[in-house]
């Protein structure tokens, strides 16, 4: 599904990602962990197409298609979804309006007609129920005045509506209470399928109790320094990252 080869990326002249390679197979769930500032969000944003970052070397492909050639919206329509670590508040832009516009832009890309209004509402309400979200959020501004946890649920709602091929969730579990964590995990698990791949960026083993990953990677200093199965997450929880940083440097 996703193939990242020898990727280097910098921002404002500083290289953040160094020669990073990562492969995510179709139907797999990968977790990326790593210390603060190691480049996890940078990687996620580069995949989604943020142009503040300069890709200086390497390639990123989705099912063989060069993602780096595409605009962010083209990537999104092709099925790449980024759940933001810090979802952006967009005052005055109606949440339901955005959801519908997003769904329709994606449908247009696939050569489908616009979604029927009633069908859209029915679908949105279904997904919201699944996430334990009150319907009143449909009529609010996008993330406007949402609590931290509400923003994260809203990201998952968008993901659920767009049904991406590849979902990258950047710390979607941070700042969630136990119920919200379960709801989010439920939303992610509902999306899990042999056709989709999911990348979870997280600091906590806890999320991985609910969403069992096939692979766990450690990103440190802009590189993947260790990959393993889900037991690696448990090990990290116990030992921290220092031993890996040393191993990587030495």
């Amino acid at each position: 599904m996703l193939d990242i080869k020898n990727l280097s990326a910098s921002v404002g002249g500083a290289e953040i990602l160094h020669d990073l390679s990562l492969s995510v197979g179709t139907g797999e769930v990968h977790a990326i962990m790593g210390p603060n500032g190691s480049g996890k969000s940078t990687l996620a944003q580069v995949i989604a197409g943020r142009d503040d970052y300069d890709v200086t070397a390497g390639s990123v492909t989705l099912d063989g298609e060069d993602l780096l050639e595409l605009d962010p919206e083209e990537r999104a329509r092709e099925g790449v979804f980024l759940g933001f670590q810090y979802p952006v508040e967009i005052p005055g832009v109606n949440n339901a309006y955005l959801l519908k516009a997003a769904v329709n832009a994606q449908r247009a890309h696939r050569g489908l007609d616009e979604i029927d209004v009633f069908e859209f509402l029915k679908l949105a309400k279904e997904k919201m129920a699944l996430l334990g979200m009150d319907q009143k959020f449909l009529n609010r501004g996008v993330n406007e005045g949402f609590s931290g946890g509400e923003k994260k649920r809203n990201e998952i709602l968008q993901m659920a509506m767009l049904e991406p091929r590849l979902a990258i969730l950047d710390e979607t579990d941070s700042g969630l209470d136990i119920d919200a964590l379960k709801a989010v995990a439920h939303g992610v698990n509902a999306l899990r399928s042999p056709e989709r791949s999911i990348v979870l960026v997280t600091h906590y083993q806890r999320l991985l109790d609910y969403i069992q990953p096939d692979h766990v990677h450690v990103l440190s200093g802009g590189k993947i320094v260790r990959s393993g199965d889900k037991t690696l997450a448990t090990e990290l929880e116990e030992r921290g990252y220092d031993w890996l940083k040393e191993a990587a440097n030495g």
Binding site: A48, P72, A76, I90, L98
Partner: peptide, 15 residues
């Protein structure tokens, strides 16, 4: 807000 523009683009809207 360019962050918001990017956010909307990742939600399939063109620039």
């Amino acid at each position: 807000d360019e962050n918001a523009v990017f956010y909307l683009r990742t939600r399939c809207l063109d620039e």
